[in-house]
Each structure stands twice: as C-alpha cells, then as structure tokens.
Computed example of a mutant assay.
Amino acid sequence: MRLNLRALLASCAVAASACGGGETPPSVEPEPHAEDPCAPNGHIHREAEGDWCHCNKGHVAAPQGLACEVDPDYVPSEGFDFGDDGEHACWHVAHGPYVTVTATTSRNPRVDDFHTHYTVKLREENGQYTGTFSYKAFASGDFVVYLSTPDVPVTLVETAIQTQLTPAGTKPTGDFCSGLRHMVGYELTDRVQYTLTLGPTSLPEVGMVIEHLQ
C-alpha cells in the first residue's frame, strides 16, 4: 500500500511541535572572566604555589583573602637612595663570582644570581646590539642595575602583565672601579619575574651587576 506522503509530513510536523523539536535551543552566553580581586590597587599573580596580590606602592596585601589595602606605615621617599654609590658592586668586579651570559632569540638567559658580576654578550640586530634577559627579584625594595657604561639603554618589564617599570633614578657610580660607571635604580617586589632588555647599543658586550640595597 502506498503511503500518503502529504499526510506523513503533516504528522511529523505535529509531533515535532509537541516535543519542542522544531525550536532552536537557546544560546548559552559564556561566563565573563572574573575581575581581578587585587584591583584597583594592585594585580593578582596566579602561581602553582598559590595566588597572591602584587600591590601598588603605598599598599599591602590584606592579611585575609586576596585584596590590596592602604599601608598605614608607608612613607613616600624623597628621591632614590643609591646607597654606597656602587662600592660593593665594584668589589664583585675585582673578586667575582663571574658569569658570562649570551643573548639569544630562543630564550631569555637568567641574570638573577646573588652578588655576581655578569659579562653580558649582546646579539647583533640591524647593525646594533641588544639582548633580553630574565630577572626574578628575591626581595622587595630598592634594586640597582650597575653597568660598565651609561651608553646602554635599560628596559625593565614585569613579565606577567607586560608593564614597563619607570626607573626610580639614574646616576654615575662613585669612583671605585673602572668596570662599573652607571647606575639605574628600580623598586622591585619579591617573587616577581621581570624581563630586562639592554640596548640597542653600538657595544657588543656589557659588564653588569644587579644588587638589592639593604
């Protein structure tokens, strides 16, 4: 017996309407990303050891939960104090320990060994020399990048958020050695990873010491 095609189609349409099969499923909007709990006075660091707040100057991490609150003990500094003007750093020029690092495009070599004189070999790029390196702060406070010459631009970026730090001060070193002639001061935070770039410069090699001022 031949089926009545028109009747079959009509019955299928009724069945679909009754079961809701003819309706387009409602779209599900993705949940918005959670806001940074440390903002607006800092930003969050999400790490395997646990999340923590990197708070802006004049603020501290709250004792409970993830938040940045005003530091009641904060006293604004008047200028950057370069301490002994490079006398201790010059001791490492004469006595070491010594490490040589070579810039490359495949990775950022580390330059965060304590009390170490680095010979930094830069890579050639467009007729100049430059290099990018990794530095992780081991304390919070004032740090100084001591360089063998003032003719090398220094750029320091907080790696996680790609924010460039403004130097807190620059100054020639004291007359303690010929191996270090320039100082660039920064205020850094313990456990934070930074990216340090030297150059572009006409110099293929630079002497460098990075110290925490205590």
Results as ranks from 00 to 15, higher is better:
206 V>Y: 01
111 V>F: 03
153 P>N: 01
76 P>T: 03
41 N>F: 14
169 G>T: 04
5 L>N: 01
128 Q>M: 13
188 L>C: 06
127 G>W: 09
46 R>I: 12
107 R>I: 11
110 R>L: 09
160 A>Q: 11
93 V>I: 13
149 T>K: 03
103 A>P: 05
168 A>N: 08
132 T>Y: 08
111 V>N: 02
135 Y>I: 06
98 Y>T: 10
194 Y>Q: 00
161 I>C: 02
159 T>F: 03
202 S>G: 12
133 F>A: 04
57 K>F: 08
187 E>T: 14
155 T>E: 11
166 T>V: 12
163 T>K: 15
40 P>W: 02
187 E>C: 07
212 H>D: 02
210 I>V: 14
155 T>G: 01
145 V>F: 14
148 S>C: 04
132 T>R: 14
49 E>Y: 13
33 H>D: 10
191 R>G: 00
36 D>E: 10
155 T>I: 07
113 D>W: 13
79 G>L: 09
169 G>D: 05
57 K>W: 09
1 M>I: 13
20 G>M: 03
164 Q>L: 06
107 R>S: 14
105 T>N: 10
59 H>P: 00
50 G>P: 05
53 C>S: 11
201 T>E: 04
164 Q>G: 07
121 K>C: 01
109 P>S: 08
24 T>R: 14
162 Q>A: 13
33 H>M: 09
11 S>P: 00
95 H>C: 08
17 S>C: 11
29 E>C: 12
4 N>I: 02
143 F>L: 07
59 H>E: 05
87 E>Y: 09
49 E>T: 11
90 C>P: 00
168 A>P: 00
17 S>N: 06
125 E>Y: 07
96 G>Y: 04
125 E>T: 06
62 A>F: 11
111 V>A: 04
40 P>Y: 03
128 Q>Y: 10
156 L>G: 00
185 G>Y: 02
108 N>R: 15
2 R>C: 15
45 H>R: 15
2 R>E: 15
107 R>L: 12
73 D>E: 14
67 A>D: 06
